[in-house]
Design a protein around this nucleic acid. Structure first.
Lengths: 236, 236
DNA sequence: CGGTACGTTGAGTCATATCAACCATAGTGG
DNA sequence: CCACTATGGTTGATATGACTCAACGTACCG
């Protein structure tokens, strides 16, 4: 399907389907965004922005999945989070007025709206409810980052992998055949967990032997959620 | 010195000395805070709030140092950050409207102002500049958290310890004798780095042998900053 | 003086990283 | 059409960083 064949989604409708981030806008504010935003499409592997670059706006995901990651030593990626429909990325850099501290790469072909920085800033200034909304978002993400820090620092790779599988299940749900609706390479999995690719492979096949998961190439089916919870120590 | 002997600091003056967080307030806004806030003093070891508790306000540090940490498996602490004069803590929970995801404990005797949640919320709503300011703060912290995640996931304990020493140097400066102005137990150091106490001890004494640091009980003097930078791989 | 918290060191163990080889698949170009 | 290459997945062997456990020293405190 070509770019011009796809109708540009309107924020108010997209908000209803995908999330609530723009639900508190006035008619005029929504109109401004709809007018100023730029609709873009990307395919798996495409890069939306790179760590260290100055960013002129943020992206609101309409469809698809994007991974947000930092590049560490030897170019090894550390995946910070995934963004899915209804979520926004790059807002951190815009609001802190710093260069991007992460890169963003497409996992699943996606459609996004690019919204210029000024719009976000002026929105925050003119609409207190919205300001609070986005503050809430940032603070929530901060809380998740703190948990992740503690996990990586204290849990074993095995525990973390089990936990990540559960998180993915929670964030992306399952398809008709009960497979996780997100498809990652073993290396990507390793880059979330913070370990080596080989370790993920070994542990996954252990989980498979233990009937905790079913593997089919990149597709993963969670067979025993309770078992994974036990391994992951989610309930301390 | 007893509590009543100490004059309650006024925000406008404290802001000038310690930081800029309240510098954009109108006269009335500052007056409201000065009127509503509650001045409190704590000593080393005191707990300001605990993970999991609902918080009714945030703290602005006037003097002293506070550690913010999460409690992980087996009660092991993971230190998320330190708060020093001019900085605020607990604002995350207030703004995200979640229970505290961390605990806060006094490292160096401190004087703080406790400011009720409603004040912060209404300030964000009524003063867009302030809202942006605090958004910036949250987003900046988020960026730091992301870096920390990548570090813990990818660097060795040795690298991380060197990096933490440099960060402490940067955040807390040195006294007349060039000792770091923050005094931590080995265990606390371990709980920042995310390792075992014994590992910190061994590495520190290695650093000492290599003339990178000088140790005097809990007091640490950085002798060779460049050397530590090299070890820590701060410049990738 | 016993108690408690902290610091230090040594020895042993284990989880995980690293290195290397190999296979499967798909895309590319001559 | 086949050789070529790149990418991803898997497995085994090996190395080692870091944790754990245990013992002991030190200092401070009531």
């Amino acid at each position: 399907m070509k770019q011009h064949d796809i109708p540009v989604p309107f924020c108010d409708q997209c908000s209803m389907e995908n999330g609530a981030l723009f639900k508190n806008l006035t008619r005029e504010e929504a109109d401004i965004i709809n007018f100023e935003k730029e609709f873009r499409q990307f395919r798996r592997g495409d890069i939306l922005y790179k760590e260290g670059s100055r960013i002129s706006g943020f992206y609101c995901i309409h469809s698809g999945i994007i991974k947000v990651f930092k590049t560490g030593l030897d170019g090894k990626e550390q995946i910070i989070r995934f963004a899915k429909p209804g979520e926004i990325i790059a807002y951190r850099s815009v609001l802190s007025n710093e260069v991007a501290c992460t890169s963003a790469k497409v996992i699943d072909d996606c459609q996004v709206c690019f919204i210029p920085s000024e719009i976000l800033i002026s929105l925050v200034k003119s609409n207190p409810t919205y300001a609070l909304e986005i503050l809430k978002l940032a603070c929530h993400e901060l809380g998740e980052a703190n948990s992740f820090i503690t996990d990586i620092a204290q849990k074993t790779v095995r525990e973390r992998l089990a936990e990540i599988l559960l998180l993915l299940l929670n964030d992306f749900c399952i398809d008709e055949q009960n497979y996780l609706k997100i498809s990652l390479t073993r290396e990507e999995l390793a880059n979330i967990v913070g370990t080596a690719t080989e370790s993920v492979i070994r542990l996954l096949s252990e989980f498979k032997t233990d009937k905790l998961v079913e593997l089919n190439g990149r597709k993963i089916k969670i067979l025993n959620q309770k078992g994974l919870e036990k391994i992951s120590n989610v309930f301390n």
